[in-house]
Design a protein around this nucleic acid. Structure first.
Length: 429
DNA sequence: ACAGATGATTATTG
DNA sequence: CAATAATCATCTGT
């Protein structure tokens, strides 16, 4: 080190009071070119800086020592601490407050619900299964796919936990490190315990924000997994033929009021080996789709109507099936009668059934026969046409009326005119 | 590969 | 909360 100094030194020897002879030594041979001079300039500055640093360090050390040994030092230090404490307190008073982040709460709740954040293996998968069952009525055949799902979920959980642990560890390490540092410094500069506390809380906040990111991405992963494996739409199976038959049979034999009660739904569910909510779905879909395009379902309706007609009773309208199955005009008539007319026509029967009869089975029986009959009548398309047309036939009739929902309600639905007596007279007035 | 059928979900409403 | 209407995502027949 010392033997290099002569080369770095500038000829002017700025401030090198301690080594007067070295500058002279440099002069021979090196003072020629400009570039060489600049280099020496830089080198000189560097050297100065180094020396100054050295000196300052020593000096500082010395001063520190002197200060520490000063007899007034403890008292002054205490005063300093006190002042600092006060200022810190005032600052903290303004910026305390740490409301639990709602976002974080949401994430936590979700992770807990998914079984990621909760207890280990057993509880987790149970929670996941519960969640899966809650979303949609999945009853029987999904055990194979489920295990796959569980495996992936536990994988996610494992990653999540290791990451979380890592973060926790790092946070703790960092915190103790900082605390040690501060404690050590507190000997030479005033650091109140509250300040340390604040520092720690800052660190914790930082780390918890990182944790939140982890939780967020974990949530995302779980959501994707869920949508992949548990969204029933992705692995939908059509019901088997028999189940569809049963459902259709019920639907078309209760066409005037295709709203199975809870018990009826359970019964159907049992018969079709599907869940009640699936039955509800089916009826919901069926109703809306039937209403939307009655013509399309004509054939089907006739089929089931005829079938129940044969099996239930031998009312046997002559030549009910004689018509060709796909008559273009049948759609129109069916549409008109299905909604408003049918309701009107059979209102009496319905109210009768609802009011005077107590036996539910008898009522249902009558109802079903009525529904069946209605179809047969519509198919024949004979006499009822005039009645239907006169009453209130319009394409909007269905839409405005809405369909089934208010059909079962007794008394006048369509018009504010008189009841069962006269039907049509005042319309053209 | 495609259109239509179909079971399920979502948003809205009363 | 159940019904409806719209929509999604898959299944199915061609």
């Amino acid at each position: 080190m010392m033997d290099e100094q002569p080369r770095l030194m500038h000829s002017h020897g700025v401030g090198m009071a301690g080594h007067p002879g070295l500058a002279q030594h440099m002069q021979d041979g090196t003072a020629g070119t400009d570039g060489e001079g600049r280099k020496q300039d830089i080198g000189d500055i560097l050297q100065q800086i180094m020396t100054i640093t050295d000196q300052s360090l020593d000096e500082a050390q010395a001063r520190k020592h002197a200060l520490n040994c000063h007899r007034m030092k403890p008292a002054l230090f205490n005063v300093l601490c006190e002042i600092k404490e006060k200022t810190v307190l005032s600052i903290r008073g303004a910026q305390e407050e740490e409301p639990p982040d709602p976002q974080l709460m949401r994430l936590d709740n979700m992770l807990l619900a998914e079984g990621v954040a909760g207890p280990e293996k057993g509880g987790g998968s149970a929670a996941a299964a519960a969640a899966a069952a809650a979303t949609g009525g999945i009853g029987a055949d999904n055990s194979a796919e489920h295990s796959d799902y569980r495996a992936k979920l536990s994988q996610i959980r494992q990653i999540y936990h290791t990451e979380l642990e890592k973060y926790e560890q790092a946070c703790n390490e960092f915190t103790t490190h900082v605390m040690n540092l501060l404690r050590e410094q507190s000997r030479t500069r005033p650091i109140s315990p509250k300040e340390i506390e604040r520092m720690v809380s800052i660190i914790h906040r930082k780390f918890s924000s990182i944790q939140m990111q982890l939780k967020q991405s974990t949530c995302e992963a779980v959501m994707i997994l869920r949508s992949r494996f548990l969204d029933a739409r992705r692995k939908r199976r059509n019901f088997n033929k028999q189940a569809t038959e049963i459902l259709n049979e019920y639907f078309y034999s209760h066409l005037s009021n295709p709203y199975p009660s809870e018990e009826a739904k359970e019964e159907l569910a049992k018969k079709c080996s599907i869940t009640v909510s699936q039955v509800s779905n089916w009826f919901g879909n069926k109703r809306i789709r039937y209403k939307k395009n009655i013509g399309k379902f004509q054939e089907e309706a006739n089929m089931y109507a005829a079938r129940t007609a044969v099996s239930a009773t031998s009312v046997s309208a002559h030549g009910s099936q004689a018509n060709s199955p796909s008559t273009p005009n049948s759609a129109g008539s069916a549409g008109s009668f299905n909604m408003s007319n049918s309701g009107d026509l059979f209102m009496s029967v319905q109210s009768l059934n609802g009011d005077s009869y107590q036996g539910g089975q008898v009522g249902a029986n009558i109802q079903s026969q009525v529904d069946t009959l209605r179809h047969v009548i519509s198919q024949t398309g004979g006499y009822s046409d005039s009645l239907a047309a006169s009453q209130m036939y319009s394409p909007q009739g269905i839409n405005t009326n809405g369909g089934w929902q208010d059909a079962p309600t007794p008394s006048s639905v369509t018009s504010p005119t008189e009841g069962p007596g006269s039907v049509h007279s005042d319309t053209s007035n």
